[in-house]
Design a protein around this nucleic acid. Sequence first.
DNA 1: CTGTATCCGTGTTGATACTG
DNA 2: CAGTATCAACACGGATACAG
Lengths: 226, 226
Amino acid sequence: MSPNSKKRAYQDGCAVAHALDIIGDRWAMPIMRELMLGPKRFTDLRAGLPGISANMLSQRLEELEAASIVVRGRLPPPAASQIYELTDWGRESEIVFQVLGRWACRSPTMEPGKPMSPVSVILSMRTMIDRDRIGDLDAAIGLRFGEEEFRVTLKGGDCLIDRGQAAGADAILSGDQNALVAVLYGGARYEDVHGALTIEGDRALAERFARLFPLPPKAPSMVSAG
Amino acid sequence: MSPNSKKRAYQDGCAVAHALDIIGDRWAMPIMRELMLGPKRFTDLRAGLPGISANMLSQRLEELEAASIVVRGRLPPPAASQIYELTDWGRESEIVFQVLGRWACRSPTMEPGKPMSPVSVILSMRTMIDRDRIGDLDAAIGLRFGEEEFRVTLKGGDCLIDRGQAAGADAILSGDQNALVAVLYGGARYEDVHGALTIEGDRALAERFARLFPLPPKAPSMVSAG
DNA sequence: CTGTATCCGTGTTGATACTG
DNA sequence: CAGTATCAACACGGATACAG
């Protein structure tokens, strides 16, 4: 395992310092992010975390397990492969990701256009949804990103977004999640990303849906006159 | 400066990944924490960050400045020494610290008793204050930790905690901030830490004050049978 | 296929010493 | 007081080999 696991730790009673001791290492939070919407296998995790090495992932999963953030499970037979899953407390960290994401998306140095994993996109929608804009919308939107399917349920002024069947929704968007990001946050129209994203069903609903996720204004840059 | 600053970055459009790119490096968030209540000099920062090396602090301050989180300033003459201070946007990250702290203080592996800086203690109080318990309390509590003074203002069911004169408050607690932590969060009574913390003024107020900061329940440990 | 263990080049961190 | 320089130790990332 970890023969001489001398973890470098802040010797600090501050709860934030403890948080950094357990989830502050490189890749720890992105791994948690990928698990936020449900269990994944080792290889699925790697797919959502471009650039991570098998070593890193293996080691971080051990550490997250030791911290009671992740538990190992096994899929029911016959596909009895190992899966990793957040604990209840691990799942409760979603609010941390939301608040951190809301703060960071105002960063003057954040440059758009970099690829996002399907889970990132879904979590960003959960974060940025403006419930005031839902109004009396009562509809379901299905999202298909490769093998992964999600469902957005708008009802009673609230919005639920989770894994679920896209089929049967009033509108279904299929294709590359990055194309959807361009539409939701990048000011693009569906026509602009045509070919990367296809729309089935209620087109007007898809248009209204695309405007439910406003971005907050950027913070001013303080670097060499701003 | 930074001759070959090849920063290792997540190539990820996720806002959380960007957050980690700019404040995910070791010591970045503790430095921000120390600046959260106002500007500090280099040496003051080191005092609140036991274990940090001078070059780390220097390098992180550069990076935080480049990210528009920190700006360099200068105290008015004659004490024209350099100070570091959060930008408006940097100060808006306090909510991140609060949410992260609230989540992390439930960690099964968090062990109490480690020392905290005066700023940490004040921020923890801002985080954990239970406004429902304030009731109709209308009073001021002064806190003195070494050279640093703070004031807690309870009024109209709300609570303001900031740097400010301790003198003139209805009750004044002076001494070691870690002793106050033991009383607020560790279940200790003032008598238990006598000598480390002295109380002037309204003793009953000090007692009521000490119960305004309840801790949430711990999350269960998932390690080897829980 | 699903991971784990080991080696190795490189960058980051931390301790000490030193300078304006 | 406010940092910079130097150097040793370690963490990271990639490749490869290995085990169930």
